[in-house]
Amino acid sequence: MAEIPANIQRAREQWRYRGQERPPFAEPVDDTQESVWDYPRPPRIEIDSRQVIVRYCDTLVAETIQAFRVLETASPPCFYVPRQAISDGVLVRSPGSSFCEWKGSAQWWSIVLPDRTKLLNAAWSYEEPFEGFERIAGFVSFYPALVECYVQGIRVQPQPGRFYGGWVTPEVVGPFKGLPGTESW
């Protein structure tokens, strides 16, 4: 488990919305929906037993009913699947990485198919996450903008923008962080 540096602690304290109040621009929800503005900061991890499938070029990349959803204010959930749910040999470590102020350093992964088709940086994982996120250590999430992701048979839509990897499902209501001008959400 990685130690949380003081500058990261300070950055965490700057967020206005933390799931305790919805902004005036939040979309209304009904009894079958969740508002991303009710999700907390720091993010919450939930077990999700719905079937999760990830495909690329008609190849099954992952399938599980033992995923975690990470819920963070303003973003649709990211689904994380256990390594054992990923088809053998399709993920290879990418040289890149990114950083989350809540979870720590993320390792990037590429998909390589038997015919040598390759998709760079299609997934990420936290191998040594910060305290509070140990449950997702070694689990992998995929970018639905790059691969086909399904939850209970419904194709996931990608979170807006190019940076985030949230999974937009019918029960999740925004607006979502990701487009220009939403950086401070």
Rank of each mutant, 00 (worst) to 15 (best):
W185K: 12
P28C: 08
F176H: 03
F133Y: 15
P23D: 07
A2H: 13
R116H: 12
E183W: 04
S125P: 08
G166R: 06
T117G: 07
V112Y: 02
G89I: 09
C149D: 01
E183C: 02
C149L: 05
N7Y: 14
V36F: 01
L146T: 02
P114F: 00
W185R: 05
P170H: 01
V61E: 03
P40M: 10
E27P: 00
A62W: 07
E171H: 14
S97T: 13
L120E: 14
I154H: 11
F79T: 11
Y164C: 04
T64C: 10
L71D: 01
Q84K: 12
S141T: 15
L119W: 05
A122S: 15
P42S: 08
Q152D: 15
W15C: 05
C100G: 11
F25L: 08
C100W: 12
R22V: 03
D88A: 15
G181T: 06
W108P: 00
R93H: 10
G19V: 07
D115H: 12
W102P: 01
F133M: 07
P76K: 02
Q157N: 12
R83L: 14
V168F: 06
F79N: 01
E183I: 00
P82N: 10
N7I: 13
P77G: 05
A123R: 07
P40N: 05
I86M: 09
S75I: 06
A106T: 04
A74K: 00
E46L: 03
P175W: 11
D115A: 08
K118F: 13
Y143V: 02
F163A: 13
